[in-house]
């Protein structure tokens, strides 16, 4: 990528008030932020709401951003903080966190049976994810849905490498146990 258009350069220009630079950043990252929030929250509506809030906060804090090549971690840290806050609020009011109808599994060239099965698997796993402790879910989602390495997850979540390894290990074991209970493993 041209360095004039990398994330740090766009953030510097966003801080100067250049709309086009900010728009390009949003365009570049909106899918990642939505996918992360959707997996964290289990609700497309909430994901879009918090994605909007994430980008608003990015804009408002553009002047404080340090261009050290860590934009994605910084952005997902903001999104993660917002998601955990929303999840805490849900628990207080007893909100049920997962709505399988929110997740649209489109035909990606596979036959209808495969699409149906993929949709059911996706719903199952997202339902099980919704029952994980927040930190475990966040680490696992960053790793498997965002493709982040443990080192970057540690930076994003403000923890250590062994901490990330432990979170993901426990998350995977909990998911396996949850899915095994209902005999829903393939």
């Amino acid at each position: 990528m041209d360095p004039k258009l990398d994330d740090d350069a766009l953030m510097i220009r966003t801080a100067r008030g250049e709309e086009a630079a900010f728009r390009l950043l949003v365009q570049r990252w909106e899918h990642d932020v939505l996918a992360f929030l959707s997996a964290m929250l289990g609700s497309a509506e909430d994901a879009e709401d918090l994605a909007q809030e994430t980008f608003v906060r990015i804009y408002r804090n553009a002047g404080n951003y340090r261009p050290e090549g860590m934009f994605r971690s910084w952005m997902l840290r903001i999104a993660g903080n917002l998601a955990r806050s929303r999840l805490r609020r849900r628990r207080i009011i007893g909100w049920i966190p997962f709505d399988p109808t929110d997740h649209d599994v489109a035909d990606q060239g596979a036959g209808p049976e495969a699409v149906l099965q993929a949709g059911q698997t996706s719903d199952l796993i997202r339902g099980a994810l919704a029952r994980l402790p927040d930190r475990q879910r966040e680490a696992l989602v960053l790793h498997r849905f965002q493709g982040m390495k443990y080192k970057d997850i540690a930076t994003t979540m403000g923890t250590t490498l062994p901490g990330v390894e432990s979170l993901i290990q426990r998350a995977l074991a909990a998911l396996r146990d949850e899915l095994s209970r209902g005999d829903r493993m393939p």
Binding site: E30, A44, D104, F145, M185
Partner: peptide, 25 residues
Amino acid sequence: QVWAMLDVAAAAPVSAGPGLWSGVR
């Protein structure tokens, strides 16, 4: 097996609605 299921879930498309940018803007 769980790993493979996570891959399926991660591949499910998530699309931004047209309102996202206008709301942010």
